[in-house]
Nucleic acid binder design. Structure first.
Lengths: 313, 313
DNA sequence: TAATTTTATTGCATAAATCTATTACAATGA
DNA sequence: TCATTGTAATAGATTTATGCAATAAAATTA
């Protein structure tokens, strides 16, 4: 049994296809087939059921794959240990960020990070929360930034900041006269919400007192941006809620239409998330510390009420 | 990096000597040297400090060795998983037993075990507690039987039985008239104790109310057997304490000199111990279940007071 | 300093891994 | 039914890795 063989097994298990798996591990299909056969012979157990199309894991195969992931993870960690001991911060580092955080947070830390850690090759990807969980779990991401808590046992979270929600109230709106908003002011049928995986949207639903989850809506907004929301709001289609950081680069005119909540303001918790195996922890910690030091200047709210991104049905 | 290389590293780390390490992994010394050099090149880190005699681990080497042990353990577990899934109970299984348990317990289960699990190749070794802990930790033993609790985080214990201590009181002894003993009757200076690692002896010391740990003794008894103790006791050199199972095959005459304790009787806890990594757990569990079913017929005491094998200085 | 022990180096044989080319097999659709 | 397609298995050639024996080099001990 070799670590290489285990990596091959993981690739096939993931793609359910020998040919595709072979590509991802940069060998030819016969090579991969033979190595997997050798491992199966050695263990005297079938890992894959090749009669099914696409290929499936056998009962025992599932357990072997889980253990293989374990071993490969632990093996990867050896280089981590060496890097850490040497104080070396480098190598490829893949990070996922949810769409509603990406445009505000990334510009704040990206330049500083790449300057401070030039040997790290950052690969940044915009992903929704469920994809992030998937990719962190199977090792396709080293870390991610998303709304938390995720209540996922195999992931670790370190809170970066609490981002309050701010109301954008068009001039003609009834709430326009109020200086500060209350949670009880909100009516789900009157708020424009971004369709965004199941993350930001869920938060708002949980926030509304009058929340009938499947309230009738005149229209559905998919893959929109906050910019669009604000424009629709201006057209009188309702108020909207924006995460605080999105309000910072608004025009002065627009800012006049913002209404903050009375404390404790509803807020979302944004965290750096990574697998509990803590691979590449040096880089993760470096990233965490950097973002934290930057965000402290941008967000300074006292008392917030965290809205969980998870629906509680 | 290969699993083989990691095994070579572990061997050198253990023996602090390339030549001896090579023997234990059944390759020549040059082969082993080269593989370790290759690994060091790949990791760009020195694992061993070859300038020291005997060879020492570098700082980073220590961490690499720990992680290597992890990986090799996890790798071994794959065959375990396959065996378990198939219900196969077999392979080499190394077990250590403390001297004061060996002669009474081993005969009770050995024959039945080898008959029930003919494919398991049992390797039994008499070891004292500290050697057992060492060998369980570094993987040279799969399980052990010893007095517990050991308070060792990397080991797991499953209690097999509680074995009460029984007094052997020579006829001329003052306690001879009593039907049952009390813990308070015991005087450390009057009891013959077996020198036995630091396990059985410590138990007795903790038991005596009058325990001055470094009480003067007229003589010291090393590596004796209970048989010797009983004979010395008969000579009038004092009473002695025997674990219950050792009293079962005494002659009727000798049994007349036995005095049990009033309940709760002082007792030692005997457990099956194994590494928390739970390698070969199927066999361990099979062994545990078997011993438990056998011992139930032999020991049936209600209320006992467990004497810890650890000194509490 | 010589003898001994231990690790590193060299050259060669063998085993293993990988590649290319091809075959085999099953599912799909004309 | 028979190409077509997608996919895994097999065969043979090639490259790479692993291992051994012999020996050199370094360190230790007598």
């Amino acid at each position: 049994m070799t670590i290489t063989q285990l990596k091959y097994v993981l690739a096939v298990a993931e793609h359910q296809n020998f040919t595709k798996a072979a590509e991802t591990v940069f060998v030819t299909q016969p090579t991969l087939s033979m190595q997997i056969q050798k491992l199966e012979d050695e263990l005297e157990a079938q890992i894959f059921d090749r009669s099914k199309k696409p290929i499936e894991l056998t009962n025992i195969g599932h357990k072997i794959v889980n253990q293989a992931r374990n071993i490969v993870n632990e093996a990867n960690r050896i280089q981590d240990i060496v890097d850490q001991q040497k104080g070396f911060i480098g190598g490829e580092y893949k990070i996922g960020i949810i769409p509603t955080v990406m445009p505000t947070l990334l510009p704040m830390f990206l330049k500083t990070f790449t300057q401070k850690y030039p040997k790290v090759e950052l690969r940044i990807e915009e992903l929704n929360t469920s994809d992030i969980i998937k990719k962190l779990s199977d090792g396709h991401l080293d870390a991610a930034i998303a709304a938390t808590p995720l209540m996922n046992d195999s992931l670790k979270e370190r809170v970066l900041y609490y981002e309050p929600f701010v109301g954008y109230i068009p001039e003609i709106h009834s709430l326009s006269k109020k200086q500060y908003l209350e949670t009880s002011d909100l009516d789900i049928n009157d708020i424009l919400i971004l369709e965004d995986g199941h993350c930001y949207r869920e938060s708002i639903f949980n926030l509304c007192k009058t929340s009938k989850r499947h309230a009738k809506e005149n229209f559905q907004l998919k893959s929109g941006s906050f910019e669009t929301l604000v424009k629709l709001s201006k057209e009188g289609l309702g108020m909207t809620l924006l995460p605080y950081l999105h309000t910072l680069d608004m025009t002065e005119d627009e800012k006049k239409r913002l209404r903050f909540f009375n404390e404790p303001s509803p807020a979302r918790e944004i965290s750096l998330i990574y697998h509990k195996s803590e691979l590449k922890l040096q880089i993760t910690t470096a990233l965490y510390d950097l973002i934290l030091s930057i965000i402290k200047g941008a967000i300074a709210f006292q008392d917030v009420k965290i809205i969980s991104p998870l629906s509680k049905d």
